[in-house]
Amino acid sequence: MVSELFGDLEGRFVEAGQPLVVIRHPLKKKEIIENILRQILYLFQAPEKAKYFFALDIQSRIDKKGARSVIIRPGDEVLTMSLMKRDTPVFYDGREGVIHSIYFEPRVSVDKGEPLIGVCPEEKLPLIQKVITRVKAEWDARQ
């Protein structure tokens, strides 16, 4: 929603970067949970701007059991990076854990440094579930 409009600038020459309008985006429940998760999970980032796909083995395990049942370990080939018709396997280098969140779509480019997956150590899954439940409960209570 528009929270502030700099009407006095109307019709005037302004420099690049000059604020014209302030837009506030009230976070939704899902976005709040996602922001919290991004601080808790180990975020495995894109090494280059490219398109990413799960490695065949990982994809078939995700298809069978769901991502949150797939445990990955350091050194595992988890993704394939596709850039300019060159395919490169991408090896996981974080802590062992389950693939909790997937931040990419297979056919959409991901910028360098953007998270590809969020990984959670298995033993911390109940804690994360607790956080999510609490956010949901507080959110619902305020509505």
Partner: peptide
């Protein structure tokens, strides 16, 4: 684009690249 060599609508040469550690 990216690297197919074409004669009209027909492909004459193709190239693949694969990187690994």
């Amino acid at each position: 684009w990216v690297n197919d060599v074409m004669i009209g609508a027909r492909k004459l040469a193709g190239f693949l690249a694969y990187s690994f550690v």
